[in-house]
């Protein structure tokens, strides 16, 4: 009956690793704040999300020990994110393409997009 301590997943990471990861997280936070200051426009949103994703990856793999966990737990966490993206993707697919096909119908969203794009021009 193997007791929990010899359990394969249980090796202990050195203290230094935690501090390095913490430092990286702080630096990345600094970058996200700077990104909004530089005002890169719509690219800014993409950069902010990428940086947040990196931070989430760091916390998940090192602090939550996903790196040395069973493959099923990793697949589970990644799977839940994949399902989230599926939910976003197909719903935004609908929201995004509503205005396109029925242009002449003057749908509410189409007017929104038109008003918004005109404002961008001025």
């Amino acid at each position: 009956m193997e007791s929990q301590s010899e359990h394969a997943e249980q090796h202990i990471a050195p203290l230094r690793m935690y501090l390095i990861i913490f430092g990286a997280l702080l630096f990345l936070t600094y970058i996200t704040v700077q990104v909004s200051v530089w005002n890169l426009g719509t690219v800014g949103l993409a950069v902010a999300l990428v940086v947040a994703a990196i931070k989430a990856f760091l916390v998940a793999s090192y602090f939550m020990h996903l790196k040395d966990d069973t493959w099923f737990n990793i697949m589970l966490f990644v799977g839940s994110i994949v399902f989230m993206i599926l939910f976003f993707g197909l719903t935004l697919l609908d929201l995004g393409t509503r205005g396109r096909l029925n242009i002449e119908e003057g749908t509410f969203y189409y007017q929104q997009e038109k008003a918004w794009s005109e404002k961008q021009k001025e």
């Binding site: 197909l90 697919l93 609908d94 509503r98």
Partner: peptide, 22 residues
């Protein structure tokens, strides 16, 4: 089963492109 929910909304004003995918 997670990818098909749009077939409940073919006539609810969903975009034709999304209806095709669903």
């Amino acid at each position: 089963g997670f990818l098909v929910w749009g077939h409940h909304m073919f006539v609810s004003g969903q975009s034709s492109f999304a209806s095709m995918v669903f």
